[in-house]
Design a protein around this nucleic acid. Structure first.
Length: 643
RNA sequence: GCUGAUGUAGCUCAGUUGGUAGAGCAGCUCAUUCGUAAUGAGCAGGUCACAGGUUCAAAUCCUGCCAUCAGCUCCA
């Protein structure tokens, strides 16, 4: 551009409108020209699809979306800046603690920064740091982006003693642009983008400090990670914190105790105890599972919990899974408690010769497996040491793979939508440490991919995350605070049939190798129950509710009628209780609501006289009077439709 | 497994600088017989997670250990 020549550039806005900008103008200057109120709100901008700082220069025709606190990208930049503010505050406060900076990104719902420092940060420190951060926000420091050469960057961070940053720079590709962001007395290696000044971060909350390995590897040093969240407005932060509090009320561990569903005890860490109420849910889930699998053409088997060491050696678990297994001895021989059901299922397959006409052969098994999970990984029902997989192994011809996988996905979708659960799928491909030929991996992965594409399911690809014996599709469900848990999985196995020399007789009369699928829908019944408790916040639909109906006689003289109603319902398989304790109705209603019983029936003089019931549904204030027969019909209808 | 925090009655929690443990709810007993989210009174309930140590004396201080929680790692 020649000096003094004023070049105009065409900028296309989100709504399609085209505006002109002077070349060399910053995005911020450009927005100010459009609207002052927008300029106040905007935090970052997406230029031709790339999120950028507002201080970046417009140098050619482009499309610009302005990002505010309502856009993920805007909030992301804001939180990223908050993490720099955090690091700046820690640097200022703990000068004598040899603070080294690691990384500090924005994440879903917040941000963190990893520090290596001599001092162990406490909850009190977090309060102090938060105060210092607020100070930095008040100082309203501008964030200035600077690009520099690799050697200058290395020299600078070496001089500062920031060895983690030096390591990061060394690992950047040769041609990478190395950028710094400065705010007052603080400089950090960072790709950006950021908001224009620290004053934009209006609401900050530090949440916790925890250990985290440098670069996520347990071989590396453990650093201190401070987690926090930030918003553009105080009101947004408050709303988010309230949401967290609400979510905590849905925690399945809390509700499991309150609703007396299950317990975990010191005598068996990670080995859950199911109480009568929890067992009702479990059994209903199993009943449903059996019915839907019958419909989808599955048979059911059961294989032993303890099997000889030789089997596990043959399956490869002895070599690949031993540290997660429990062992025992029988008559001086080594046995293992099964961590997976497949070897058992394979032994059943091998008891017959199979014809290609029999395939696909779908064998389900509700198999109780035991795995030694790390103590720190245990989490309520979500992560336990013994759990029942709703497993099935499907043996089939290679050309049946794609269709069969689609059927499995259909089944999954049916099951998850029955519970109103949202899920997302992930496809994991061949890991480095794997077995089998390239061709067969390629074929299997393509089959999984095609099945997903064909069904129009969106999915994430995890390169190299498959099992050593084959690629897989995982289905992830969310818990109450948005953590996702792998539940369903479909794994193609090209290895086990080989190891166990499984065969079928083909059309040609020759023996051929079948392909095998391992799959679980619930994943584990325990984890799935955990997900359901949080999904329903403990207020289960009628078909799952441990107690479906509670009848409350107003006084002693109505008890007989209550018990007569109970007998009728009980005989029809309805889970019903009478609360004839000597308490007022209000008291009993309250208790039924706390226990989240779907239907409460109040019976007094009026109901006894007319053969009626006053029905109050969970969560509703009013009651509806109807005949006992009509009520029973309604309950049966709800149960039948799983509504 | 790692880093940090926590552990007191069935549940939720108090318990000051070490001086021998307390509330509410739940439970039990009695009275009350009541119409849609808590009737009243009384009683009972704890080797303070566990094991050592310091001290005249430990829920409290120290060490170890177990479990739980958050996160990391790992996974259904």
């Amino acid at each position: 551009m020649k000096k003094g020549v004023f070049v105009l550039i065409q900028v296309t806005l989100k709504d399609g409108a085209v505006r002109e900008a002077a070349q060399g103008m910053t995005i911020l200057e450009f927005v100010k020209g459009l609207s002052n109120s927008l300029a106040k709100k905007v935090l970052a901008a997406k230029v031709d699809g790339v999120t950028k700082d507002l201080t970046s220069v417009i140098d050619k025709d482009c499309k610009i979306d302005f990002l505010t606190g309502e856009d993920a990208g805007g909030l992301w930049a804001l939180r990223h800046t908050a993490s720099h503010i955090l690091a700046q505050a820690v640097k200022r406060l703990y000068k004598d603690s040899n603070v080294k900076l690691a990384i500090g990104p924005a994440i879903d719902n917040g941000f963190y920064y990893d520090f290596d420092m001599d001092r162990q940060l406490t909850a009190d420190d977090l309060v102090k740091i938060e105060k210092e951060m607020e100070k930095i926000v008040k100082e309203n420091l501008s964030l200035v982006r600077r690009e520099l050469s690799r050697s200058d960057a290395l020299a600078m961070f070496t001089e500062k003693g920031e060895s983690y940053k030096v390591e990061l720079i060394n690992d950047l590709p040769e041609d990478a642009v190395i950028s710094l962001y400065e705010q007052g007395d603080f400089t950090d290696l960072c790709a950006g983008p950021h908001v224009i000044s620290t004053g934009k971060v209006k609401a900050i909350k530090l949440q916790s400090v925890a250990g985290a390995y440098w670069r996520g590897s347990e071989k590396n040093k453990m650093l201190q990670r401070v987690y926090g969240t930030a918003f553009e407005k105080k009101a947004d932060l408050d709303a988010y914190l309230t949401l967290l509090e609400e979510a905590a009320k849905r925690d399945h561990r809390k509700l499991g105790k309150e609703l007396d569903l299950f317990s975990l005890q010191e005598e068996g860490p990670g080995f859950p105890f199911f109480h009568p109420n929890g067992m009702v849910i479990r059994n209903e889930l199993i009943n449903y599972w059996r019915e839907i699998h019958r419909q989808f053409g599955y048979q059911e088997i059961q294989t032993p919990m303890i099997l000889n060491r030789k089997l596990w050696e043959q399956s490869g678990h002895w070599d690949h899974y031993q540290e997660n297994m429990y062992f025992t001895k029988i008559d001086e021989e080594d046995y293992a408690i099964k961590p997976m059901n497949c070897p058992g299922g394979i032994l059943v397959y091998r008891t017959h010769q199979h014809s290609y006409r029999d395939l696909p052969l779908r064998m389900g098994e509700l198999g109780l497996v035991h795995r030694h999970e790390l103590s720190g990984a245990l989490h309520g029902l979500m992560r336990v040491r013994n759990f029942t997989q709703d497993d099935a192994h499907i043996f089939m011809l290679p050309n049946q793979i794609e269709e069969e996988i689609q059927k499995v996905i259909d089944l999954f979708d049916r099951v998850y939508s029955t519970f109103g659960l949202e899920y997302h799928a992930e496809l994991s491909t061949r890991p480095e440490d794997s077995m089998g030929s390239d061709d067969i991996w390629e074929m299997a992965t393509t089959a999984l991919r095609n099945a997903l594409d064909h069904r129009g399911l969106k999915y994430v690809v995890n390169e190299g995350d498959g099992a050593f014996y084959g690629p897989k599709i995982d289905f992830h469900l969310k818990d109450s605070i948005g953590r996702t848990w792998q539940c369903g999985t479909i794994q193609l196995d090209m290895l086990m049939p080989e190891k166990f020399d499984l065969t079928y007789v083909g059309e040609d009369g020759q023996k051929h190798r079948p392909v095998m699928i391992h799959r679980v829908v619930y994943g584990s019944i325990e984890r799935f129950i955990g997900i359901l408790i949080e999904n329903y916040a403990g207020a289960f639909p009628v078909w799952l509710a441990p107690v479906q109906v509670r009848i409350l006689p107003i006084t002693d003289k109505h008890a007989e009628y209550a018990y007569e109603l109970k007998r009728q319902m009980f005989d029809l398989g309805i889970r019903v209780e009478v609360d004839d304790r000597n308490e007022k109705v209000g008291y009993k209603i309250r208790e039924s609501q706390i226990k989240k019983v779907p239907y409460v029936l109040v019976v007094g003089d009026q109901e006894v006289e007319n053969g009626q019931v006053a029905v109050r549904k969970y969560g509703e204030q009013n009651s509806v009077v109807m005949t006992g027969a009509d009520f029973i019909k309604e309950v049966q209808e709800k149960v039948a439709t799983k509504a």
